[in-house]
């Protein structure tokens, strides 16, 4: 089966500072991954690891410094932005700032219908909108003419998913879609993603720092750290048996809803993001519990360990054998 989205050696650099002291930060550093049709792929990591930048480049909001992005085998170029809006739709983090508080929510839907010429007459448009809203558990009647403040955060997030579905996209890019939603309502959004994948065959690029929902919902996962993918594979392999020390740290830091599983050991936090970005060698070397001399000078290669991509010197001897 062909891959729906292919991202090859994607790099995005930002420069900071003035003429005399210019610092170039590589926010995304040679990221390569693919998404198959009807698959939920998670990009996980802490803030400042480059996951949102990756999403922005894939959506065409930012231009890549180098690298290619193929959607259904076609390259992304500024002139062909149509696939970006028709084939790929985005869902953002904060449902309250997605919608203008002074406009009714249904205006956004009619606008999308108009922009993409999805329907010619209003009754047709309403029927289409109602059909998409029902997919997320709402109806046109309970939503028409209302302002964003009349909905809860979870409802608004479901509304923005319905709007994204209007153009029948093959890929949804969801950037931290549940981090602003109450823990008790998160599952309704996450279950919705599963349903969309299973019934409509939509693929989802799920960007999150919440590994618990990532485990629950996704098929494959990539853990990002300071611009690099440090571990990539199926969720079972990566989260049940993490190999990279950073994946282990991330996994162990999720608070478990079980008072018997409290943390006992202490954790070292990063001092400054910029320092880690500019670090030579492995970027995690400053905090890694298994740090070796080689880690401080040489960037580890992408190694294949039992079908999982791991970017760590600890495994370099294993894969040679």
């Amino acid at each position: 089966m062909n891959n729906l989205l292919e991202v090859n050696e994607l790099t995005k650099q930002y420069s900071q500072g003035n003429v005399l002291a210019r610092v170039t930060l590589t926010a995304v550093d040679g990221v390569t991954f693919y998404i198959k049709p009807a698959e939920i792929f998670t990009l996980a990591g802490e803030s400042g690891c480059g996951k949102t930048t990756t999403a922005k480049v894939v959506l065409g909001f930012e231009e890549a410094t180098s690298g290619t992005i193929l959607h259904n085998g076609k390259p992304q170029s500024p002139k062909e932005k149509v696939w970006i809006t028709e084939g790929v739709q985005a869902i953002f983090q904060d449902p309250f700032s997605t919608f203008n508080p002074l406009r009714t929510v249904d205006q956004y839907f009619f606008e999308t219908v108009q922009n993409h010429l999805l329907a010619v007459k209003k009754p047709q448009a309403i029927e289409l909108i109602d059909q998409k809203l029902r997919l997320v558990g709402l109806t046109y009647q309970e939503f028409a003419g209302k302002y964003p403040n009349e909905f809860s955060g979870g409802q608004l997030q479901r509304i923005s998913i319905a709007r994204a579905l209007l153009t029948n996209p093959s890929l949804l890019i969801a950037d931290e879609p549940v981090s602003m939603v109450d823990a008790s309502l998160r599952m309704s959004i996450v279950n919705l993603f599963k349903k969309l994948r299973d019934t409509l065959g939509v693929s989802i690029l799920y960007i999150t720092h919440d590994l618990a929902t990532a485990y629950y919902v996704s098929d494959r996962i990539a853990i990002m750290f300071r611009g690099n993918i440090v571990e990539m594979g199926t969720v079972e392999q990566v989260l049940m048996n993490p190999r990279h020390p950073y994946s282990k740290l991330l996994r162990d830091s999720i608070p478990q809803a079980d008072p018997a599983k409290r943390w006992t050991d202490t954790v070292t936090l990063s001092e400054l993001e910029e320092e880690e970005y500019l670090r030579q060698g492995c970027k995690f070397a400053g905090r890694c519990p298994n740090v070796m001399e080689i880690c401080k000078g040489v960037v580890p290669a992408d190694l294949n360990v039992d079908g999982v991509l791991v970017k760590c010197h600890l495994y370099s001897s294993e894969s040679e054998n």
Partner: peptide
């Protein structure tokens, strides 16, 4: 408590119904 996902358990979980 039951709406929280857990590792190693992919059983379907539900949110608190309604709002």
């Amino acid at each position: 408590i039951n709406s929280l996902p857990k590792f190693g358990d992919k059983e379907v979980r539900h949110s608190v119904p309604g709002s």
